[in-house]
Design a protein around this nucleic acid. Structure first.
Lengths: 212, 212, 212, 212
DNA sequence: GATGAATGAGGTTTCATTCAT
DNA sequence: AATGAATGAAACCTCATTCAT
């Protein structure tokens, strides 16, 4: 974790690895896996092709490392976001805000993330990025627990199963953030967060509870 | 439309074309554009490679024809679904049901459709399937009109802009149908329709109106 | 020879054959053998491809028939031109004029003719148009006889072997006619004939004879 | 120019390039552009196909490089030959001898050269080897200057325009050298040079001047 | 007899991967 | 340890030719 604790050599290698992944990410997100060559990545990362292969067994490996590491960062952040103690509404609001921040800070990765986490990325031969989806499913389970808890505490009305609510919230956030990315002037970032929450909370909050 | 009205030869050609597209669809949806060769498609469709090229100028052409024709069928069905006269709730319910039916009847195409209509499909070089997205956007505009009308008639509370509501509904339906496709035993089809509607309507319906 | 003497059916077939060869000639002379497809020829000649193959066993056959028949017409005309009785100078002048007339009347064929008769046409695999060259060599031999006769009658000085003189005259006529074809405004046709003859005769005519 | 001055790696690359061009030249001159495959060239040059493509963008590029470089060598030699100071007769004699030497030393290239410089090579689609012809025209202009100078100095009689004389000399040399190449026993090399010169000079040299 | 749809061999080209330097 | 030249499998696509209608 702390690079300063590693020998200089090791730190150097980590840096190189990150440079390679950064170059690859930019290219993959622009053109898609199959329209980017290893040569191109090497060129952009300013390494020789052979060096690339010292770090990654093959192209698929490189892609998988890239997607797994990045989406792990995403999922870690999301999980941390919903682990904060507090009211369910606060937690979900925190989650939505965190996701927005992660997306904003990782623009190039977003389309790849959505494609892979939704299982509509056809880059790698046969279900090779299943790990990403598995991690995503796991996160959705945890998100479902938040809804579950809210329902059980009568904070939320049970308009659907907790898991369905989690999936719905997740996908709507994705959709709204994509809107913003593709046409920020039409869909300003500020709208996103509130719109998502309003759609869900306005309806979800139990009437009795709300009428207090 | 009516194949009986065409000369025998023409009907034959149409049949062949459809056979080719069907073979291609199955392969593309399983493995993705770049992991399928023309040779493979020809083999599956039981034609010689040259015959494929009599019908489609090149691989990209074949893919585009496939995606455009199929998604036009989808969009046509969706638009017809929301053109039925009646109460906004009825219209949206009809839309959700129609989408479910289209998905059920076109399983292999769904992943391709979601990838391309969401702009996360990296199959074709530069924005070649933009037409699909354009059609999708147009449909979303029309769906937004339904929400708009509902809001103006005080049928719905304005928890977000009509367009945002349209996007949200659309993406949640997609997500739930994907759930069902990937694990039908965990997420039975019946749940889908009601869950989507409950999430939206339960909250959307204005309280005053609902209290009647 | 006389088409009127043939049954109607036969005459019809000859006409079709000629139409095919004419279409092929135009295309071959514009683009070269390998850049013209049988499909293209059929289209231009307004026949079905199958019909083309009723008349010619394959593409090579068609090309050979075309080149052989056309160059036979050329060689026949050239040989007739040098068979006219008379003074050698008259004969050669007649030859040069005839060649000019043939070229003018068969523009599209000229480049093909020069390429094939000179052995620099790479259209057909291995020396398949040798027949054209053989016919050309035979003609050169006859042309050489004219020089030979002129030399023996002391009409010409023997500045080179008769065969060499024949080759030289032939190639210079070709070169000058090509000049005219490619830039008629710079190299008018009239210049051609006189220039060729002057170069050869002015020098060739024996001084003693000339001094008479 | 001096390969010793280049780094070892560069020298190596130049060697490889030359090996490839040499293999290609041999094949193209034997069978023609369209009857030679890249595979064949790679095989003959003893490289992998991919290596060929490292040196030449595509087949056409390879052919053009080959023809342009070789014919530049030819034209350079020819132009140097006529730049030697001296009597016009000496210059032309020098040119004829030089051309003979170049042809003898570059047998495989000759047919290609004649085809391309005369504009009867149908190898490359649309006028791609025009550069060769342009260079050839430029040379002919310079050769014409030699005749012009000879005429103005009354060394030559003006039996035709200087440019026509240049074209005639050029084409006759070509023709005689082709004769020699195709049947050396019938047309020994020695004959060529003298025959060409005799045909031209015997007649060209002004009588007054000659009578000295 | 004429047609032209269907065929598939074979050509050109790309690019992931290796390995000698 | 880093390099990048060399490799060749495999992709796309064309077009001469056949043969059922």
């Amino acid at each position: 974790m702390n690079p300063l604790s590693l020998p200089r050599r090791e730190r150097e290698k980590l840096r190189q690895r990150e440079d390679m992944l950064a170059a690859a990410l930019e290219l993959f997100s622009q053109k898609g896996y199959h329209n980017v060559s290893m040569h191109e990545i090497a060129l952009k990362a300013e390494f020789a092709i052979g060096t690339l292969y010292k770090f990654f067994r093959n192209k698929e490996d490189l892609y998988k490392a890239l997607v797994l590491e990045q989406s792990d960062r995403f999922h870690d952040a999301f999980e941390r976001a919903i682990e904060t103690p507090g009211d369910e509404v606060e937690i979900l609001r925190h989650y939505v805000r965190t996701k927005g921040e992660m997306f904003r800070a990782n623009l190039p990765f977003i389309r790849l993330y959505i494609a892979e986490s939704r299982g509509v990325g056809y880059n790698i031969k046969a279900g090779l990025t299943d790990e990403v989806r598995k991690r995503h499913y796991e996160f959705l389970e945890r998100l479902a627990l938040v809804f579950d808890s809210g329902i059980r505490r009568n904070r939320f009305r049970k308009v659907a199963s907790p898991y369905q609510l989690a999936v719905a919230l997740d996908t709507v956030v994705n959709a709204f953030l994509l809107l913003w990315i593709e046409a920020p002037e039409l869909h300003p970032y500020q709208d996103t967060e509130n719109a998502v929450l309003d759609i869900f909370f306005e309806g979800l909050i139990a009437r009795d509870f709300a009428q207090e």
